[in-house]
Simulated scan of single mutants.
Amino acid sequence: MDVKLERLPGQVACIRIDRPEARNALNAAVRERLAEIFIEIAQDETVHCAVLAGTDKVFAAGADIKAMATAEPVDMMLRAGERTWAPLKDFPKPLIAAVNGYALGGGCELAMHADIIIAGEGARFGQPEIKVGIIPGAGGTQRLVRAVGKFKAMKILLTGEPIAAREAEAMGLVSEVVPDGEVLDRALALARQIAAMPQLAARKIKELVLQGSDLPLEAALLLERNTFQLMFGTADQKEGMAAFLEKRAPSFTGR
């Protein structure tokens, strides 16, 4: 199996791409399996946070060029790649990408579907599609601009050259850089920390950040204000504030 799902203690799911012979290239089978897994864990109430990783050597080095080299436009339309990306885009729970090695092309786009990116010192990010005569096709021209701004994104997109983890962190593409051997452990520790938080609040924060980024500021602030008020109808709000006042650890139920 090229993609493995493991449910871990602490209400965390770990999804790993393991196709080292192809540097974890995202062929149709891998994308289909990722879609299946994210649909499954989105509906699994025992999973509060997910970690997406590759191997210790590579996250995902792009799409499978061999499968696309002779394709025609109709072939690409019939593949309906957006269908397999949708379960990641619409995943309602916090998602952390643990990136070792290359995250290029589709691999960089895959990482950008996450809410937090933990990268190893040796990680490299890039959108090299221009070098083979195409453009990014899974959000690279859109999510990258939103993450790092027009001028940094244009340099990455138009040169096709990868950037190092520290540079990616400085421009806002990466949340945190750690030694290569600590990437997955750090991502899982962070996932456990987030999984222990009130789950309705965590999901609403993700929802607001993603929806609000495409709205005018006043509309986004109204959405935030309405959601803030609704949180006072949750059991976790009552428990969290009572625990704070009573100086004890809270016991959240996700309700």
Results as ranks from 00 to 15, higher is better:
residue 1 M to K: 09
residue 1 M to P: 10
residue 2 D to F: 13
residue 2 D to I: 12
residue 2 D to N: 12
residue 3 V to S: 02
residue 5 L to I: 05
residue 6 E to T: 15
residue 8 L to Y: 09
residue 8 L to M: 12
residue 9 P to H: 04
residue 9 P to K: 09
residue 9 P to M: 02
residue 10 G to L: 07
residue 14 C to I: 13
residue 16 R to K: 13
residue 16 R to F: 06
residue 19 R to Y: 13
residue 20 P to I: 11
residue 20 P to C: 09
residue 22 A to H: 08
residue 23 R to Q: 14
residue 25 A to V: 13
residue 25 A to E: 12
residue 29 A to I: 06
residue 29 A to D: 10
residue 32 E to P: 01
residue 33 R to G: 02
residue 34 L to D: 04
residue 38 F to A: 04
residue 39 I to Q: 12
residue 39 I to G: 08
residue 44 D to I: 00
residue 49 C to P: 00
residue 50 A to I: 01
residue 50 A to K: 00
residue 54 G to H: 02
residue 55 T to L: 07
residue 56 D to C: 11
residue 59 F to M: 04
residue 59 F to Q: 07
residue 60 A to S: 12
residue 60 A to V: 01
residue 62 G to E: 00
residue 62 G to Q: 00
residue 65 I to A: 14
residue 66 K to A: 15
residue 67 A to C: 00
residue 71 A to E: 08
residue 73 P to H: 06
residue 74 V to R: 15
residue 75 D to K: 03
residue 77 M to C: 14
residue 79 R to G: 14
residue 82 E to Y: 15
residue 83 R to C: 08
residue 86 A to D: 11
residue 97 A to C: 05
residue 99 V to G: 01
residue 101 G to W: 05
residue 103 A to M: 07
residue 105 G to K: 10
residue 106 G to F: 01
residue 111 A to L: 08
residue 111 A to M: 07
residue 112 M to T: 05
residue 114 A to D: 05
residue 114 A to L: 08
residue 116 I to A: 11
residue 119 A to G: 03
residue 119 A to E: 01
residue 120 G to T: 04
residue 120 G to R: 01
residue 123 A to R: 06
residue 124 R to I: 02
residue 126 G to T: 02
residue 126 G to N: 01
residue 129 E to K: 03
residue 131 K to C: 09
residue 133 G to Y: 03
residue 133 G to R: 04
residue 135 I to V: 10
residue 140 G to E: 07
residue 143 R to Q: 09
residue 144 L to N: 03
residue 146 R to C: 13
residue 151 F to N: 14
residue 151 F to G: 11
residue 152 K to I: 13
residue 153 A to V: 01
residue 156 I to C: 02
residue 157 L to A: 03
residue 161 E to R: 11
residue 161 E to C: 08
residue 162 P to K: 01
residue 163 I to W: 05
residue 163 I to K: 08
residue 165 A to L: 03
residue 165 A to C: 05
residue 172 G to Y: 08
residue 172 G to A: 08
residue 173 L to W: 07
residue 174 V to K: 02
residue 174 V to M: 03
residue 176 E to Y: 13
residue 177 V to H: 03
residue 179 P to E: 13
residue 179 P to Q: 13
residue 180 D to L: 09
residue 182 E to T: 12
residue 183 V to E: 03
residue 191 A to F: 01
residue 193 Q to V: 13
residue 194 I to E: 04
residue 195 A to K: 02
residue 196 A to W: 01
residue 197 M to W: 13
residue 200 L to K: 15
residue 201 A to Y: 10
residue 205 I to P: 02
residue 206 K to M: 07
residue 207 E to T: 06
residue 207 E to L: 11
residue 210 L to E: 15
residue 211 Q to S: 14
residue 212 G to E: 10
residue 214 D to C: 04
residue 214 D to E: 14
residue 215 L to G: 07
residue 218 E to L: 15
residue 218 E to W: 11
residue 219 A to M: 13
residue 224 E to T: 14
residue 225 R to F: 12
residue 226 N to H: 10
residue 226 N to Q: 14
residue 228 F to M: 15
residue 231 M to E: 11
residue 234 T to D: 05
residue 234 T to R: 06
residue 234 T to I: 07
residue 235 A to Q: 13
residue 236 D to L: 05
residue 236 D to S: 07
residue 240 G to F: 09
residue 240 G to K: 09
residue 241 M to S: 14
residue 242 A to F: 06
residue 242 A to V: 05
residue 243 A to R: 06
residue 247 K to R: 09
residue 248 R to Y: 09
residue 249 A to N: 03
residue 249 A to M: 05
residue 251 S to P: 02
residue 252 F to A: 01
residue 254 G to L: 04
